[in-house]
Amino acid sequence: MEFRFEIEGGNFSKAGTASSEVKKILKQLNVDPKIIKRTVVSLYEAEVNVVAHAYEGEMNVEIIPDKVSVTIQDKGPGIPDIDQAMQEGYSTATPKVREMGFGAGMGLPNIKKNSDQLNISSKVNVGTIVEIVNYLK
């Protein structure tokens, strides 16, 4: 099964809607609630990153019997140093985004903790691709 969701850069009132759709689908498929919880945390963080940093993006979800693979791809500023971005507490979020309670530098570490496989590739001034895989068994 494959699904595709658009993510609008800068629109915080819609942040989380793609993750919420994926949660509903996984629930309907009777996926183990523990795996749903982990997947939802990592997808939400990746979605918020697109909203907070990029111009636009999309979430592509593929569900096969033994795993859920999600690719979150955006057009945006990219990440110059991925290792640095992975560090807990490191953030480039704007003051406005921080005031909302985002931008604490916990997003990417949260994704790492809540996914079985994580791959990030990025090109400065082009965009970022985040690939998340969680096994269903």
Binding site: F12, G16, S20, K23, V40, Y44, M100, G101, F102
Partner: peptide, 15 residues
């Protein structure tokens, strides 16, 4: 929390 914007509902719902 003291946050009042819509994203708190996204979190409450997802979690």
């Amino acid at each position: 929390t003291l946050q009042t914007h819509k994203n708190i509902m996204a979190i409450a719902s997802l979690k």
